[in-house]
Nucleic acid binder design. Structure first.
Ligand code: MN
Ligand code: MN
Ligand code: MN
Ligand code: MN
Lengths: 220, 220
DNA sequence: TAAATTTGTTAGGTTAGTCTAACTTTAGTA
DNA sequence: TACTAAAGTTAGACTAACCTAACAAATTTA
């Protein structure tokens, strides 16, 4: 049985690994930063996780989840995203509110609960932020998506997910009427600062920053 | 902010207090037994709860929740019973399965969640075991009910709640087709051992033990 | 390649929650 | 009332998860 804390470390390792595509190795500092603890604390926990065969690593080396560690991490992520979907779909939470509560709910221990929940939600494929929900067998659907910042001039795309899930960004998106599925056309990429002139839905053309464009996942 | 553990102690104190009707005082040993810890541990925690003004007590004296402590305890109980109802009503859990999971869910921290959940469930008054669900304002509806063992010969009643919520008892009730609302007629009280000859619904007359009769709440 | 910077580890300490064993107080019984 | 049994407390110890400060290794950069 894993503790609440151990689960958080495994999920963190998984998430950080998923970010860097082909290189799922992660460093102590990244991990600590992600979890809001000090590097020393992360090192301690790493030793414990290694002892339990949940990660492989050696002093000053990179960290890699073992098959078991990865499986456990995925189970937590699955619960996280299912709960987010529940809160959003059934309890009228807004997409910037779900994360904090799901962060707690993801640790509830009950196979039956998570599977019944999934059924109750009608086997959703994506969470409110557009991220794929891992299946009961541990499979994470691969979604082909790119950042808005990677789009070229005169290309059109649809928003499929948010990379930054901070309340600040999500609330800003709401103000701009951007949700999953919104159509965006890139009219111009400004050389000076990389900002984009875009048309969002049918709204008047406007400019968005690089930071903005690097926080949205889209699909052509 | 209360820890998971502190919440469990407050709920335990509340529950034990509610059991003894007019005397809501509780002893260290009862508390420890209820929570599955040693008396020494309960004493330690008591000091902390006193420090935080959640209980009043002095060495070797009885324990009493303060107004604040009681309120916090009720909030946990409210969440517990709402979650049990959710699991039972929406996710098809059986009434002997809900408790264990609710024991974890009751600690999720989110005012909004509990109130939205209540709304989603259509403001239920009772949990799957027939126990009243505290209101958002902290009020616990008082339900007038007696034990089946207190019934006299030739009286008829309906089951309104279970006192013993162990899986063993609940599964036994299912086998006998007893649920909340089932009609029971006491035909005879056997002097020898206090057992009752009862008719449950339309089933053939059968005998139930004192232990059984003391585990069911009914209403005439 | 040597110095400077970044990254990661170790040592030692804290707090919450638990335990056992020994002790003290209170309550019940003779 | 005195004695015994039950109830409750204290002392000392342990583990998990965290920290700070000092140090060591690896990487970058000049
Ligand atoms: Mn978490
Ligand atoms: Mn999400
Ligand atoms: Mn609990
Ligand atoms: Mn219940």
């Amino acid at each position: 049985m894993l503790s609440y804390t151990e689960e958080n470390y495994l999920k963190a390792l998984l998430m950080l690994g998923l970010q860097n595509e082909d290189k799922p190795e992660v460093g102590t500092n990244d991990m600590a930063a992600y979890l809001g603890v000090k590097p020393a604390t992360a090192t301690d926990m790493l030793k414990k996780l290694k002892e339990k065969d949940l990660v492989t690593y050696q002093k000053y080396g990179k960290i890699l989840l073992t098959a078991i560690g990865r499986k456990k991490g995925i189970a937590v992520l699955r619960k996280h995203r299912l709960w987010e979907t529940f809160l959003y779909e059934k309890l009228d939470f807004s997409w910037d509110e779900v994360h904090e509560v799901a962060e707690q709910l993801e640790h509830i221990q009950s196979e039956k609960l998570v599977n019944k929940l999934e059924e109750f939600l009608d086997f959703p494929e994506f969470d409110p932020h557009g991220d794929p929900i891992p299946k009961a067998n541990g499979e994470i659907p691969i979604v082909h998506r790119i950042l808005l910042s990677e789009m070229k001039e005169n290309e059109t795309c649809r928003v499929v997910a948010v990379k930054d899930t901070s309340a600040l960004f999500l609330q800003y998106l709401e103000r701009l009427n951007v949700t999953i599925g919104t159509k965006i056309t890139v009219l111009e990429v400004v050389d000076f600062d990389g900002s984009l002139n875009v048309q969002i839905g049918n709204a008047p053309v406007r400019s968005v920053s690089v930071k903005f464009a690097e926080s949205l996942f889209v699909k052509k």
